[in-house]
Simulated scan of single mutants.
Amino acid sequence: MRPSTLLLALPSMALAFLSPGPLHKRDSWGGSVSLGPTKSTIINAVTTIIPGAAPPTQNGMLFLWPGMSNGTGDLVQTTLESWPDNSWCGATTGQWCIRASLFGSFGQLDGSAGVVKGTDKVKIEYNLEADGETWKQTVTNADTGAALSSFSYKSGPYMRGWGTGTECNNDCTGTVAAQQYINTVITLKEADATFGNTIAKASGATYSGLASSSGGKVWTIKQIDVPSMS
């Protein structure tokens, strides 16, 4: 289980409202790109990450994720994970464990875990279901369609920010390869023509192809590039 402080605390002003508490003094961060808060609410967010190889050995805990929250409620956050021993999910050297996760006042809840290679394209989708309360996380291999993890929970229709994270805890071994997020699409309940103005980047991350459609209801980022920490 990840400690409760490992929440969506991106090193950027745009998502500062998503951080529920102080970081451990030995925590550090890689690059990130974030959007929010929106004047509307998010109803769907999908992206595909190519994570690059995980470190061959690990001292602490390293996490890659796209996360979504409103800063006071639950945090929707599928994570790619590198631990000193990743055998709990079946990963071998250079591979990542992955699981759909949720954080809140109750602690952490997880879906089943899968294994991801550095060259895999991993599609991560967060969708607000028809009841307007349940967020479903669906994680698949974008090339094969194979299921990797999933999780559903009633977190409410309150999500206002989305961002990527490269999170290093307990003096971890940082990323040794760059990450790439492609074909990110964020759909809002109502149009927010100013949502794109909230985009922020940190620690060398870059983005390209930010655009909107449907009057500012649908926002896309063609590509996000996050450099390695090494």
Rank of each mutant, 00 (worst) to 15 (best):
I199H: 08
Y181G: 02
T134P: 11
I124Y: 01
G145H: 07
G111W: 06
C97I: 07
E133D: 10
A178N: 14
N59V: 05
A191V: 02
A14C: 11
I182K: 12
A16C: 01
M159P: 00
D171H: 08
A16W: 02
W88M: 02
W96S: 11
D120G: 05
L109F: 08
A205L: 05
S213T: 15
K154A: 15
R26Q: 13
K136H: 14
P227I: 09
S212G: 11
P3D: 13
E125A: 15
V33L: 12
V122G: 05
V122Y: 01
L210V: 11
Y181D: 11
S28P: 01
L80Y: 07
F63Q: 08
E129I: 00
T173K: 11
P37A: 10
I182E: 10
P157D: 13
F151K: 11
W219A: 01
G52Y: 09
I199Q: 11
G204V: 12
V122L: 02
D225R: 07
G71A: 09
L35M: 15
G156W: 07
T166S: 10
S40I: 07
A205C: 05
T38P: 02
V226T: 06
A146I: 02
P3T: 12
E190S: 14
V176R: 03
D131Q: 07
T144C: 09
M1N: 07
V139I: 15
L23G: 06
L35G: 03
P157K: 11
R99E: 09
G60T: 03
H24K: 06
A191Q: 03
N197L: 12
T47C: 05
F63W: 12
N183T: 03
V115Y: 01
F195N: 08
K217N: 01
A193N: 11
G60V: 04
S87T: 15
V115I: 14
Y126N: 04
S212N: 13
G21K: 04
A142R: 01
G204L: 12
S32G: 14
S34F: 00
D74F: 09
M159F: 01
A54L: 06
S208Y: 01
G165V: 08
I43P: 00
T166V: 14
G196M: 11
S203L: 10
A177R: 06
M61Q: 12
G52N: 07
A100Q: 08
C172Q: 01
